[in-house]
Simulated scan of single mutants.
Amino acid sequence: MAIVSCPSCNKSISDKHKQCPHCDNNVAQLDDEQRQQLAREKRIQKQQMFMNHSFFALIIFLGGFFSLYFLHPEPETPTWYACAAAIGIGCIWYLINRVILVMLKKKK
């Protein structure tokens, strides 16, 4: 008896199980092609999730930048700190997501 991961929910199950106890997916009837298709779909969903996160991070970055550019807040005020924080957080979050996306594409 070995522990394998369910192709649908990716949780650990016994290879003797006919059906996943977590997601109720029938794992006994899946062939290799179906398992590969499920893995491909999960990878695409993960890539889309990180792509959405990177777009959201870019919106935060640009919101902070344009607020700083157009509103001209006085230095050392809460508005100025909020704009600077949005720029910093958005930039770092965007870069991290892009690195993760590149790593996911190389795993193919």
Score class of each variant (00 low, 15 high):
residue 89 I to N: 01
residue 90 G to N: 05
residue 61 F to L: 13
residue 23 C to M: 04
residue 81 Y to W: 13
residue 56 F to H: 05
residue 81 Y to E: 06
residue 61 F to C: 05
residue 38 L to P: 00
residue 81 Y to D: 06
residue 7 P to Y: 05
residue 57 A to M: 07
residue 85 A to E: 01
residue 51 M to S: 15
residue 105 K to Q: 12
residue 12 S to P: 03
residue 56 F to A: 09
residue 49 M to Y: 15
residue 18 K to C: 01
residue 106 K to L: 12
residue 60 I to G: 00
residue 33 E to C: 00
residue 67 S to N: 10
residue 42 K to S: 14
residue 31 D to A: 08
residue 76 E to C: 08
residue 92 I to V: 15
residue 84 A to L: 14
residue 76 E to H: 12
residue 50 F to A: 08
residue 102 V to R: 12
residue 28 A to H: 08
residue 5 S to H: 12
residue 86 A to P: 03
residue 68 L to N: 09
residue 107 K to A: 13
residue 67 S to C: 08
residue 61 F to V: 02
residue 58 L to Q: 12
residue 26 N to S: 02
residue 67 S to I: 08
residue 31 D to M: 09
residue 84 A to Q: 13
residue 6 C to F: 01
residue 79 T to C: 05
residue 3 I to H: 07
residue 59 I to Y: 05
residue 78 P to T: 07
residue 34 Q to I: 01
residue 96 I to F: 09
residue 87 I to H: 00
residue 85 A to P: 02
residue 26 N to G: 00
residue 11 K to Y: 02
residue 25 N to I: 11
residue 57 A to Q: 04
residue 84 A to D: 04
residue 79 T to M: 09
residue 49 M to S: 15
residue 10 N to M: 10
residue 27 V to P: 00
residue 36 Q to K: 15
residue 54 S to R: 14
residue 28 A to K: 13
residue 53 H to R: 12
residue 27 V to R: 06
residue 87 I to W: 02
residue 83 C to I: 05
residue 97 N to M: 11
residue 99 V to W: 11
residue 103 M to N: 12
residue 8 S to L: 08
residue 44 I to H: 01
residue 71 L to V: 07
residue 51 M to F: 15
residue 8 S to R: 09
residue 91 C to P: 00
residue 57 A to R: 08
residue 78 P to W: 09
residue 52 N to Y: 09
residue 45 Q to F: 03
residue 100 I to K: 13
residue 52 N to F: 06
residue 58 L to H: 10
residue 93 W to I: 00
residue 67 S to E: 05
residue 9 C to P: 05
residue 13 I to H: 03
residue 88 G to C: 15
residue 58 L to K: 09
residue 81 Y to S: 05
residue 87 I to V: 14
residue 40 R to P: 00
residue 35 R to D: 04
residue 12 S to I: 02
residue 55 F to L: 13
residue 80 W to K: 03
residue 17 H to V: 15
residue 65 F to V: 09
residue 67 S to D: 06
residue 3 I to C: 02
residue 75 P to R: 11
residue 1 M to F: 11
residue 16 K to Y: 10
residue 29 Q to L: 12
residue 80 W to G: 04
residue 66 F to M: 10
residue 76 E to W: 11
residue 6 C to L: 05
residue 92 I to D: 00
residue 2 A to R: 15
residue 48 Q to S: 11
residue 36 Q to V: 03
residue 107 K to L: 10
residue 68 L to G: 07
residue 97 N to T: 11
residue 84 A to C: 14
residue 103 M to K: 13
residue 74 E to M: 14
residue 14 S to V: 03
residue 21 P to G: 02
residue 71 L to Y: 03
residue 66 F to W: 10
residue 41 E to T: 05
residue 36 Q to W: 00
residue 77 T to Q: 07
residue 77 T to K: 06
residue 73 P to A: 08
residue 28 A to C: 01
residue 39 A to L: 10
residue 31 D to G: 12
residue 29 Q to H: 07
residue 52 N to H: 14
residue 12 S to W: 07
residue 79 T to H: 03
residue 91 C to N: 03
residue 55 F to E: 11
residue 6 C to N: 03
residue 97 N to E: 06
residue 40 R to M: 02
